[in-house]
Design a protein around this nucleic acid. Structure first.
Length: 617
DNA sequence: ATAGGGTTAG
């Protein structure tokens, strides 16, 4: 007996060396020669290997392996069921499970965890619940930690949070995996409060649990909290890996400040996950640098990567596009086509955005038309929105309407929003009415849409319509998002300004600097652009309101607080207005400074009186 | 055996 066991484990060790199907078949012959072909243990190992080869159909050789054992034990059954559970069809996995039950063979916990995982992946709630009932009927499984964890995962994937929570609350013993599964589930639903409460109650936090919190905050647009959690994780001496880094890098990208960028880059490099060694970290850094206004450094990271994937290319293309480096974006796209890396729909979002910013309608249309046939990328709603923006901004409003009518999915807010924006730019209230009618249904509380419609009316002097829309805004009690701007001082400190904000300690100096700048600008022909004011007030009041725009305050502070010759970096939460854009152009000429403004969608690089967007935004 | 993963328009 002992001799037999020794032989079994020796053969199993040989099985574990298999790398190809042919090798597996040779080992199988060896198994025959040693009379081990009925041994479930050995065959289970071999079956696990051959079912991991995705090119081998399960009904061919694997099925033969399984069928030749007369009395397969639960582990062999499970290995075969698991293969179908993972690779499908799920119905076949169930059929096998039923035969196993008919033969009165008891499943093991692994059998259930495989089936739960498959029903979760298939979002098959009914099946999941039936299997849950089975575990209760059979008994003994309700205390099994693997089975319970798999059940939590299944309910979470199917969207049944309360069932998942009930399993969690009632299981006699939980491990860090059970906790993390729920933390992630709450974070994905946007409930960071619940996630944080659970996390606080977890006593043995490991790297994965910490990472789930960092990523959760980053994904819910709470970058400061993400960075805060990451700092605490470092303080506690928890190990980090590339997944942890990606979460916090994404948070730093949202913060958009150079100090955070430098801080996390150093940490990434010193922990051995620099862009040279990790595609994941490298791609995240590309996105971060471009969102921090440093597209050159983004490109340096890109060039320094040993391996590049679709995320690296897409992030870089999008980066070039939002910085107005249109030709760099398009060139990189064509370079990418020469590599093994296949573009996806985000790649096309990037290259189409680049076309939009340069008004390259023909190229954009051609790419959009051939995208699916040549590159296997099916058009998504986002891509239709890009096309609506491309055509609309170039003035082809009817083409956008035709595009919307023919798109295979229901047009979303982005598509109608692009059309409304284009109607405003081209002063077409009739089309603006069509777009806003849909937008008011899809996004009833989005003030921006009402303002765009109202301003489109105003631009052609339809004042009755203007007051009608304004009345509607009042009735709905919609409030304008306060405009904020941030600017980096010399030491990397971030200073925040609201429109008309007088609370800054250096406000008097700032006002003086701004007034002087505006006077000098008037000397070279600057006239305040009163149509940038969205309020119905007299011209003097409009001039005052314009002067108080947060980006102008930020600009003045930037001029005061940074060295002559250095770049001024401003971030803002709303779209930059025409008047501020004119002022930034002029200021870059008068002061010789480079000014970079990140508004809510893209970057403007002002240098020597011109903007990288060529006044087209 | 089970948990954490980056790029997206107006």
């Amino acid at each position: 007996m002992a001799l037999q066991r020794g032989l079994e484990s020796e053969v199993v060790r040989i099985v574990e060396c298999c790398r190809t199907l042919n090798q597996a078949k040779q080992v199988h012959a060896h198994i025959y020669r040693n009379n081990l072909e009925q041994c479930s243990y050995v065959i289970t190992k071999l079956l696990r290997f051959v079912t991991s080869l995705t090119q081998v159909p399960l009904h061919s050789y694997p099925r033969l392996l399984f069928a030749q054992v007369h009395n397969p034990n639960p582990f062999l059954w499970t290995a075969f069921i698991r293969a179908y559970a993972l690779r499908g069809p799920l119905s076949q996995a169930l059929r096998l499970f039923c035969s196993m039950r008919k033969r009165r063979i008891s499943p093991v916990s692994f059998t259930f965890s495989a089936l739960f995982s498959a029903s979760g992946a298939a979002r098959d709630t009914l099946l999941g619940a039936q299997l849950h009932a089975q575990t209760l009927l059979l008994g003994g499984f309700d205390s099994d930690i693997y089975v319970n964890n798999a059940m939590i995962d299944m309910y979470v994937k199917c969207g049944f949070m309360r069932c998942a929570r009930k399993v969690f609350d009632e299981m006699p013993e939980r491990d860090v995996v059970s906790w993390t599964e729920l933390i992630v589930a709450y974070a994905r639903r946007g409930d960071m409060k619940a996630a944080q409460d659970l996390f606080d109650g977890l006593h043995v936090k490991d790297m994965v649990a910490w990472t789930a919190m960092v990523t959760g905050y980053a994904q819910n647009a709470m970058p400061k909290d993400a960075v805060e959690v990451f700092r605490r994780l470092l303080d506690e001496g928890v190990e980090i890996d590339e997944v942890t880094l990606v979460g916090v890098i994404s948070a730093c990208a949202q913060l958009g400040a150079s100090v955070y960028a430098k801080w996390i880059r150093d940490i990434a490099e010193s922990s051995g996950f620099g862009p040279g060694s990790s595609v994941l970290v490298g791609s995240a850094l590309i996105d971060m640098y471009s969102k921090c206004g440093n597209v050159e450094e983004a490109y340096n990271v890109f060039k320094g990567m040993r391996e590049r994937n679709v995320f690296s290319y897409s992030s870089m293309i999008v980066g070039f596009a939002i910085h107005g480096r249109v030709h760099a974006a398009i060139k990189l796209f064509y370079d990418m086509l020469e590599t093994e890396v296949k573009p996806n729909h985000v790649t096309f979002v990037g290259v189409l955005t680049a076309c939009t910013h340069a008004g390259l309608v023909d190229l954009g249309q051609q790419l959009f038309a051939t995208m699916e046939k040549c590159y296997g990328v099916a058009p998504t709603a986002e891509l239709y929105a890009c096309m609506a923006d491309l055509l609309g901004r170039a003035g082809y409003l009817e083409k956008v309407i035709r595009l919307v009518e023919t798109m295979p999915m229901k047009p979303d807010g982005a598509v109608w929003g692009a059309l409304l924006g284009a109607s405003y730019v081209h002063g077409n209230p009739d089309v603006a009415e069509i777009a806003s009618k849909h937008l008011f249904e899809l996004e009833p509380d989005n003030l921006g849409n009402y303002l765009l419609l109202s301003n489109t009316y105003a631009s052609v002097g339809r004042w009755d319509d203007v007051s009608r829309v304004r009345k509607c805004i009042r009735e709905k009690n919609l409030k304008k998002d306060p405009g904020w701007s941030w600017v980096e001082a010399k030491n990397g400190m971030i200073h925040k300004f609201a429109a008309g904000d007088l609370k800054h300690p250096q406000i008097n100096e700032i006002k003086k600097e701004l007034n002087e700048l505006l006077e000098r600008l008037k000397g070279i022909g600057y006239i305040p652009n009163l149509s940038s004011v969205l309020y119905d007030v007299n011209d003097d009041e409009k001039k005052l309101l314009l002067m108080a725009h947060s980006e102008k305050l930020a600009l003045a502070f930037g001029l005061l607080s940074t060295d002559a010759g250095s770049t001024i970096k401003i971030m803002k939460n709303l779209r930059i207005c025409k008047d501020c854009h004119i002022v930034m152009c002029g200021a870059s000429r008068l002061t010789g400074r480079k000014i970079v403004v990140r508004d809510n969608t893209r970057f403007h690089h002002f240098l020597n009186g011109a903007c990288s967007c060529r006044n087209f935004w």
